[in-house]
Design a protein around this nucleic acid. Structure first.
Lengths: 219, 219
DNA sequence: GAGCTTTGTCAACACTATGTCGATTTATAT
DNA sequence: ATATAAATCGACATAGTGTTGACAAAGCTC
């Protein structure tokens, strides 16, 4: 059955590419419902319409597939963290709140993958490396931001090392977002969570940690 | 072979009790070196000097054994959290710093078990319940403390709900201690970590969050 | 479209690990 | 001493992983 052929670049119209995507899509769907450990290669393969052994033509293991999904999420994280790095003239409260909300949104979108990747870091070294790369991105961005605000005299000075502080704060976020992404999404609850985290960030990093917006009142 | 018998209660000189302990001891030792998932029942049984199938006479599964270890740690957590609840006249900085140091010490002592328990919460519902019980203890204690300090006018007032704030902060601790308990213990690094976390707690909870990390030199 | 290569598919196997059974041995109490 | 309870183990049955080799389907080249 031949119809109007896609003229020029029919490059990479590979059939296997389709199957590979289906595999990843189905895996992520399953992952949304239950932990990776409880999902068999069988299930993923069947869901994608191929036999279990065919699965191994595409991925070396369940973990390899997870890593492929993780790489996708990695890219989303990059852009998210990049944006966070962009200095701006807005008041800190808003920048931080927006960054946190963005981040929570990312976790809502890719939560299953991010959680699974995080959970596997102990049993699969490759996943661990990928996770570290992702986490590092955030810590770096945060530490840089803190240093910048310190230089500008807006943030509490050095004693707590910027990197360590950044690690603690992003660790808190990770934990909170991991959990939140498991609960059903509620705009109300999400806003509260972001607000709580923002409070911690602002009070910890900035001077006169008054969460009350702008114009510092006389002390 | 009778020697000076322990006179009265030679109650429960069961042989199996000994084996059970050995099982738990060896399991914890293995757990210190590598993740639970990579440890076979075989290894634990052999290390304790019994056959694999005999293992099941004592525990229904690897996870059941882990839970038994978790219960032990649970008790240590109780006393630790209880102490944290005891109100005192010392300045907040010291109370918090000491509580955090205590907690880190607990993680250093029982890290392998706590980490494994945390890691298994996704695959084993029973472990999840146990973990929640432990985590809850901390959140409750913290929330209560925050409320008390708020009533006393020492802490920032309500907007961030005490419980949610407590959850965020203890989440941060969990993450930090989990990681720290994997690194080789360094008094230097440990002190810095505690100091960093204490800074976050104090600045977040208390008013005028000026945290002098021990006599600030003139700048 | 005949022939060639690359790509994709799968059943059958080998391996590892778990948990269960029944038979048997070892300890303990009376 | 002997009955009972506690403890041990080998031999299954089951479930899941990853590999191999044989085979089919596309995709290209002439």
């Amino acid at each position: 059955m031949g119809e109007a052929a896609p003229s020029t670049r029919r490059r990479t119209a590979r059939k296997g590419d389709l199957t590979e995507r289906r595999l990843m899509r189905e895996a992520e769907a399953l992952l949304a419902a239950r932990p990776l450990a409880s999902i068999g290669v069988d299930e993923i393969a069947t869901a994608a319409g191929i036999s279990r052994s065919s699965f191994y033509f595409y991925f070396a293991s369940r973990e390899a597939l997870l890593r492929a999904l993780g790489e996708q999420a990695h890219h989303e994280v990059l852009t998210s963290a990049e944006r966070w790095l962009n200095r701006t003239h807005e008041p800190p409260e808003e920048v931080i709140t927006r960054a946190l909300a963005d981040n929570l949104a990312l976790w809502r979108r890719r939560g299953p993958v991010l959680r699974a990747l995080y959970d596997t870091r102990n049993s699969d070294p490759e996943s661990a490396a990928l996770w570290r790369a992702i986490a590092r991105r955030y810590v770096d961005a945060t530490a840089a931001q803190i240093d910048r605000e310190r230089d500008a005299g807006l943030a509490h000075p050095a004693p707590p090392d910027a990197r360590q502080l950044a690690a603690a704060l992003t660790g808190m976020n990770l934990r909170a977002f991991y959990d939140a992404s498991q609960r059903s999404p509620s705009p109300q609850g999400d806003r509260e969570l972001v607000q709580t985290l923002a409070t911690v960030w602002i009070r910890t990093v900035y001077r006169h940690g008054s969460v009350q917006p702008s114009r510092t009142p006389a002390s």
